[in-house]
Amino acid sequence: MKLGFIGTGNMAGAIMGGIIKKGIFKPEEIIGSDIFEPGRERAKAEYGINVTADNKEVVESSEIVVLSVKPQFYASTIAEIKDSVKEGQIIITIAPGKTLEWLGEQFGKAVKIIRTMPNTPAMVGEGMTAACPNEHVTEEELKYAVSILSAFGKVEVVPERLMDVVVSTSGSSPAYVFMFIEAMADAAVADGMPRAQAYKFAAQAVYGSAKMVLETGKHPGELKDMVCSPGGTTIEAVRVLENMGFRSAVIEAMKACAEISKNM
């Protein structure tokens, strides 16, 4: 086996699914461990991977290991596996707040570590992942890791000082977007649109708008201005959003998110 996951939750599943779909690894080349038996059995049934309850078995069987447990379990998990980590093995982390320096201290030896921050749209192949390697990772190894991470969306290599900003900008932001879609749908329902149809209209509008930003290369403000006719409906909606502090609320929420990430 070449690729191992310690933890088989939603994010691990999203990564596995993308990797298998793109043919980067076959299911039989992947192993996942989870102390929660229903979780690992679900991963086995859904993706056809090998599973185990033993974290050390994952490390001993894999070239690359993804630590996909919750941040609060990182210290105990690393303490359990650190003696099994081999020279040349790559460890990929996906926990906010766990710096390369902290991770290195936990392993207590020279280990190739790539700190990443993916997000849940990876589940539909539209993830956004930031990656930051430590000094032991070669350019070739980083390139290989990026090719794996690209299986479920876009990847950018960033300096570590930006990782907490990444958490607020893409790691946590799907929650903000889902709230926005839900609010738009609630308003549509209040005006008489059936609930399922309201979600479809709102979600497609967000998806299409995001695609316009990415594919046209135009500034979001310019794209907004294109929709706002003088004296029209859209500029009136924008006026109300500005009056209610829409942009300020988003900025303050993201700054609070980044601050929590720094102190995890």
Score class of each variant (00 low, 15 high):
E126Y: 13
P133K: 07
V155K: 03
N119I: 08
I181M: 09
D191F: 13
F152P: 06
G153E: 11
M163A: 10
E182K: 12
P194S: 05
V177C: 05
T169H: 02
D186G: 09
L149I: 09
L149G: 00
M128G: 11
A151C: 14
P194E: 10
T129S: 13
S170F: 04
H136E: 13
K154E: 14
A188N: 07
D191C: 03
E160T: 04
R161D: 13
V124R: 02
A130E: 02
L149N: 02
V157Q: 00
F180E: 04
F178N: 08
E139N: 14
L162P: 01
A122V: 05
Y144N: 05
E139M: 02
N134D: 06
N119Y: 03
M184V: 03
L142Q: 03
V146L: 04
S147Y: 04
V167A: 08
E141L: 02
N119A: 05
S172V: 10
A175T: 11
S150V: 10
S168Y: 02
D191E: 13
E141H: 09
S150C: 05
P133N: 15
P133R: 08
A185M: 03
P174Y: 10
S150D: 13
E156D: 09
M179L: 15
V189Y: 00
G171A: 03
C132M: 06
S168W: 01
V166D: 02
V157I: 02
V158A: 08
A175M: 11
F180N: 04
V165L: 15
V166K: 01
D186F: 10
M123L: 15
E139L: 05
V177T: 09
P159I: 09
P121W: 06
E160Y: 07
T138W: 07
D164M: 08
L162T: 06
D164Y: 04
I148M: 04
K154N: 07
H136M: 06
I181V: 15
V146C: 09
A145G: 12
A131W: 01
V155S: 11
D164E: 15
E139G: 04
P133H: 11
A183V: 06
T120D: 10
I148Y: 01
A175D: 10
Y144F: 15
H136A: 13
S172R: 06
P194M: 10
A145M: 11
V158S: 04
E140Q: 14
G125R: 04
S173I: 11
E140Y: 13
P174F: 05
A196E: 15
T129M: 10
V155E: 07
L162G: 02
S173D: 12
E126N: 07
D164R: 02
F180S: 01
I181S: 04
S173R: 07
